[in-house]
């Protein structure tokens, strides 16, 4: 019954917190580890993200996305905000931190969300340059200017690739609404 977790939290059901952690703890932790300079920072970020999830649980719309993607969106927003207020690069200590493996717990395996599977399919049909720009911006968190500097692609073209690529994937996922379409 994972689909009901956020609705249960929004209605004040405290027992849903355990279920939320069990279902999405690994997801949030994975994102935080990749988008934080070190393990201490990732742990602080995860605590903040779960507070954000509880505050925003009522905004979840099951007709628009899965809970997995919604929670990943909340997590990314917090992590991006934290990165903007700190040095974005991973420190050399981070590799040492990674050698400390978490202990086993009873978390079930998180299945890739429906949207993630669809997004993977959509990425396959994008032009390689579009895919590259999206990867550098979404995974590495690079600005358009930084991507341009790193790849040699002109800034205007980077923006176009990012915009068109995202809109194509968004359309593939069925997230676009007709009255908001733009010509790209």
């Amino acid at each position: 019954m994972t689909q009901a977790i956020l609705q249960r939290i929004a209605s004040g059901d405290k027992t849903a917190v355990q279920d939320c952690l069990k279902s999405y703890g690994g997801l949030v932790w994975s994102l935080a580890r990749r988008m934080s300079p070190n393990t201490d920072d990732a742990e602080d970020a995860v605590q903040e993200i779960f507070i954000d999830i509880w505050k925003n649980a009522g905004r979840f719309d099951a007709s628009q996305s899965s809970e997995t993607t919604f929670i990943a969106m909340i997590a990314r927003r917090r992590l991006i905000d934290r990165l903007r207020h700190s040095n974005r690069r991973l420190s050399p200590d981070s590799l040492e931190d990674l050698t400390v493996e978490p202990v086993n717990n009873s978390d079930g395996n998180l299945q890739m969300s429906v949207e993630a599977k669809e997004a993977a399919k959509a990425l396959e049909v994008l032009r390689p340059e579009q895919r590259q720009v999206l990867q550098l911006s979404i995974i590495q968190g690079l600005s358009h200017q930084e991507i341009s500097d790193a790849t040699g692609i002109p800034l205007g073209t980077v923006k176009t690739h990012a915009r068109r690529g995202l809109l194509q994937v968004r359309e593939f996922l069925g997230l676009g609404s007709m009255n908001k379409e733009v010509s790209v």
């Binding site: 690994g26 997801l27 580890r33 990314r76 990425l123 995202l166």
Partner: peptide
């Protein structure tokens, strides 16, 4: 935001266990 989150999820392994 949901699109970028979905792309992100499609590119990484999210099965790590929280301490």
């Amino acid at each position: 935001a949901l699109t970028t989150a979905a792309i992100n999820l499609s590119m990484i392994d999210t099965n790590e266990e929280m301490p």
